[in-house]
Structure formats: structure tokens, C-alpha cells
């Protein structure tokens, strides 16, 4: 502020008091335009759902919602007349089980890696970290074949279990648990805590933030995972939301745009809600994975 005042003085041409300098105006316009581009497709999706079906675009360009009741009836229709609810249930189960597994298994391993020495630790850690570099492309087909030979195709465990050893999650939790002071662990040991009690009463509660962040990121990833359910659970019994949406959208689908958008909107709802509630955590989590990676 001070420096700006100085410039204003030393440069009489700019001393004319404008409410907005040209720079700032440009900035606001740009930001607003980009925000529209970013948000509008989602907004548009909402409008399509909450509009009377069948109105031609020329009459209703769908820039704002027009009929609340039409939207509700579409949502009810999708829920009652299609298998959407079942897909929803599958996706929720898939996400929750994955989150639980990733958190439990990951935090236990991170606890050992971050706070203790054990034989082979370095090599194990290096292997896990190297795996972060290996693209999914190389493992997806053999993993599918393995899952198939375990007889896990079209099962929930087939969906969930292969994704539980998350190297990313482990890395994130290790980074976090490393910041637990050694003194604290030793104090607890002197207080008589066993190895498991150290994990349960010290490491876990102290990593609560990281665990919540990881849970959210895992949710986002699982909910949006398209490729793995597509190949490992191709039967309609275990369709996830992603697959159903994919079907609705496919060129051979007989659904109208209203119905498709309703399906889309419902699929977008959980992550959008999560985002609204946990915005800070999500952003911090991503920023952290970026700065540490």
C-alpha cells in the first residue's frame, strides 16, 4: 500500500483518482469470465435437470433453472425406474470400503515406517516409493488377470482389495507421522504403552488431519474411478455410478438429455457436497502432495 502511494506521488499521470485502475478492472473481468467457464457446465447441468422436458433450446437456452418440480420428478423417475439406486449403493460401498481399508492398512504401515527401525525398512520403502513412478497402465491388465484367477470378477472384494495398498496414501501418512516428535513416543513408552497402544492412542489421534485429508482424496478418487470397475465388474449387478452414467451417455443409449443429465447430476452430487464441506482439506491435501512429491 505504501509503495503504491509512493508511485502515485512520483508519477503524476497516475495520480488521477480512479476507483479501479485499468489493471484491476481487467483482472476482475478476466477472473469473472474464467469463473463462468469453470462453473457454467455444472450450472448448465443443473438447469437442464430443473427444466420442463421437451422445451426446445431456442425457447429455453437453459441459462437458469425453470421448473423445480420437473427436476424432482426426473430424479424420482431415475431412482424408481432404473437401477441407478443400486449403482449408487455399489459406488458408496466401494468408496467406503476402500477408504476404510486404505486408512487402516496405510496408517499401520506408516506408523512402522515413520517411527521405527526394522530390518529391510529402507529397501521396502524404496520399492513402495518407486511404485509411485510406475504407471497404472502396466499393472492394470495383469492385476485384472490376477483378480480374475482369484475368482473375484464381479465381486466387491475384486473392486476394493487390489486398490488398498495405496503407495500415495502411505507416503502421505509417513510424511505426516514423521513430524510426531520422538520424545512423545518415548514418553508414551515410559508411560507403559504397548506397541499397539502407541499406534492407537498416540499416532492415530495425532494424524487425524492427515487421515481426514487422505480419506477425502481417496473418496474423490474412488468415486471417480472409471477404468477399474469397467473391467473388473462388468456385470450389471455391480455397476458403479460411473458405469451407469457411461451407459446412459453412450451413443447407443435411448435416454433423452434430461434423464442423462439427471443421472450426471446425481453422480456429481457426493463429490460436490464433499467439496463444499471439506474445501480447505482437499485443497491442502493436494497442495501438500504437490510440494512433497
Amino acid at each position: 500500500m505504501t509503495a503504491e502511494a509512493i508511485t502515485a506521488y512520483s508519477n503524476p499521470a497516475r495520480a488521477v483518482a480512479l476507483p479501479f485502475s485499468g489493471w484491476a478492472l481487467l483482472k476482475w473481468i478476466t477472473a469473472a469470465c474464467i469463473a463462468i467457464v469453470a462453473v457454467f457446465p455444472i450450472w448448465w447441468m443443473v438447469n437442464v435437470v430443473f427444466a420442463e422436458p421437451g422445451t426446445p433450446v431456442s425457447l429455453n437456452p437453459r441459462l437458469y433453472p425453470t421448473s423445480f418440480s420437473a427436476g424432482i420428478s426426473k430424479i424420482l423417475m431415475i431412482m424408481q425406474e432404473t437401477d441407478y439406486m443400486k449403482a449408487y449403493y455399489v459406488s458408496v460401498a466401494y468408496s467406503l470400503l476402500t477408504i476404510a481399508g486404505v486408512l487402516i492398512i496405510g496408517s499401520m504401515a506408516a506408523f512402522e515406517f515413520a517411527l521405527f527401525e526394522f530390518p529391510g525398512k529402507r529397501i521396502l520403502f524404496a520399492t513402495v516409493m518407486l511404485s509411485l513412478m510406475v504407471p497404472t497402465a502396466v499393472t492394470i491388465i495383469p492385476t485384472y488377470l490376477l483378480t480374475a484367477s482369484l475368482g473375484w470378477l464381479n465381486t466387491m472384494q475384486g473392486l476394493v482389495v487390489p486398490g488398498l495398498a495405496s503407495a500415495f496414501g502411505l507416503f502421505m501418512l509417513i510424511q505426516f507421522m514423521k513430524t510426531i516428535p520422538r520424545d512423545m513416543i518415548e514418553a508414551a513408552r515410559l508411560d507403559g504403552a504397548s506397541h499397539f497402544q502407541l499406534y492407537r492412542y498416540i499416532a492415530l489421534p495425532l494424524s487425524k488431519n492427515a487421515l481426514v485429508t487422505l480419506a477425502i482424496l481417496t473418496f474423490m478418487k474412488t468415486w471417480g474411478n472409471f477404468m477399474w470397475p469397467l473391467i473388473v465388474a462388468p456385470s450389471p449387478e455391480l455397476y458403479t455410478v460411473g458405469q451407469v452414467v457411461g451407459l446412459f451417455n453412450s451413443p447407443y443409449s435411448h435416454q433423452t438429455v434430461d434423464i442423462v443429465m439427471t443421472a450426471n447430476l446425481l453422480a456429481a452430487l457426493p463429490p460436490l457436497l464433499f467439496f463444499l464441506i471439506f474445501q480447505r482439506k482437499i485443497v491442502e491435501g493436494i497442495a501438500m502432495s504437490g510440494s512433497k512429491g
Binding site: P181, M184, E186, A187, R189, L190, D191, P205, K208
Partner: peptide, 29 residues
């Protein structure tokens, strides 16, 4: 085992458990 020696230690960093109240810290052992 350290916990069974009958010794108690006070650390330079205090090493208090940040997620517990003073009462819970003292009650932990």
C-alpha cells in the same frame, strides 16, 4: 522394559500429548 523400571522422565520438549487435556496427559499411564 522402560515402563517397568519405576522411572519417570520429563523431556526438554515436554512431550505432552497435544490431543489430550492436562488431566488426560497425567492420567495416561
Amino acid at each position: 522394559d522402560p515402563a517397568r523400571r519405576g522411572v519417570a522422565m520429563v523431556f526438554q520438549s515436554y512431550a505432552l500429548y497435544p490431543h489430550m487435556t492436562a488431566f488426560e496427559n497425567m492420567a495416561f499411564s
